[in-house]
Nucleic acid binder design. Sequence first.
DNA 1: CACCGCCATCTTGCATGCAAGAGTTTTGGC
DNA 2: GCCAAAACTCTTGCATGCAAGATGGCGGTG
Lengths: 246, 246
Amino acid sequence: MTESNDTTPLASLLAHLPEPEPGRRKGKLHSTTVAVLRNMIVTGVLAPGTRLNERELCEQLSVSRTPVREAIKTLTQDGLLRSLPNYSAVVSELDPDELNSLIDVVTVIEGLAGELAIAHVTDEDVAEIGLLHYQMLLHHTRDELPGYFEANKAFHRKIVELSHNSILVWVWELLALRVDRARFSSNRWPTRWKTAIQEHQLILDALSTRDGERLARTMREHVRNGLSSLVTSLQTANGTDASQKD
Amino acid sequence: MTESNDTTPLASLLAHLPEPEPGRRKGKLHSTTVAVLRNMIVTGVLAPGTRLNERELCEQLSVSRTPVREAIKTLTQDGLLRSLPNYSAVVSELDPDELNSLIDVVTVIEGLAGELAIAHVTDEDVAEIGLLHYQMLLHHTRDELPGYFEANKAFHRKIVELSHNSILVWVWELLALRVDRARFSSNRWPTRWKTAIQEHQLILDALSTRDGERLARTMREHVRNGLSSLVTSLQTANGTDASQKD
DNA sequence: CACCGCCATCTTGCATGCAAGAGTTTTGGC
DNA sequence: GCCAAAACTCTTGCATGCAAGATGGCGGTG
């Protein structure tokens, strides 16, 4: 009964499928499946609470159960799914507590990234990050949501990578997964769009002047502000987009 | 050639196998396999660089390839293995760069834990942590390495859990895996044993007096000192226990 | 003698088969 | 008519089979 309303939302996702060269068709099914499923969960195509039936997924993704099972295990480890023994994996809920927890952790992680980045940042890096900043400005003026998202994430990732700290990057990617999910879940723009862009400018300034302490502080504030407002907007919109319920 | 010197090191690990009641023998093979393999890697039974042959592992663990494959995927995600397509998974090396990276990240994570813990700590918690502290003292006087390790980890975990921040706990567990690996890899005691215990005392004091800032600072210093000394001792002992090489 | 290419074997990646646990429905008894 | 128990079905967990890529040895050739 609860499975009827899928107007093949897979189609759009399946379009993302690399569809690689026919040669060498071994060794990528697992990662592809993980990527597709992850996208579906992060973007909300698979809503929180959805039960994942392995056989269905097999048919929809046109693969056998083995890669699907492995993907489920992987995504469970990432926290996107919850699995109980002998029971279907379920898309995890966006727990408000967890989102608040996320704020604190991402704040210190990106703050540390800012602190460490200063030691490695080059003029070229500053230019690249500046480019991303102006891309965001452009997307802002054009009201292009996905483009802004993408540039924003690239902006932050670039700074995190500048830390030259592999563990930091690793943890950040794990956290970013959950942040992205929350962002997609609140389908509308954050009210602090312009503020965010101003903060990005401050971050860029701190990078150019190689002011590590200021960079770290600015990033911490920026992250905390952004995520707090995100959580707030999610709480207020607390069921408006839960279009389906039984 | 390089695979000859295994005097069935599995035996000790297999002893850890729960060997559950014959009834309900379904649904635990995967987690058990993960746990066993993880233990083998963290404790160094499986040395860095070791190739993991699936069939061999199946025979040794008496399970089929499916749970073994899933376990390998899981541990790869945890960073304990490196997997290349169409190639055996390999136990990852303890990259010195990565260990240095680990220091910075664990420092801010445990620092944040200290900061947050104050808001939740009760007298009972203080008592429990104090108990662990004195257990460590006891193990110290008795020169009991594994007991000290265990109590030390419980001490830190308890404070991390006091943060009541699920994301923080999750990340900490991921990081602790790598820290443990490094600890086991340097099989000897850190020279700063007594210092560590003194620092634990300071942490305990800060907890009792509910001094959040001091707790955070003390924990940061303690973690940084401990891990730095660990990395140093690993670098100096940089090949002494690499008993086998081709 | 050295180097290149080919064949045998091994190993992984994926598909599928089978059994056990859980939920559901139906049927029998009260 | 209602409750309970049994059987059915559905779904997952694990085992195994099969094919493609990789490795290593061997022979041929320059």
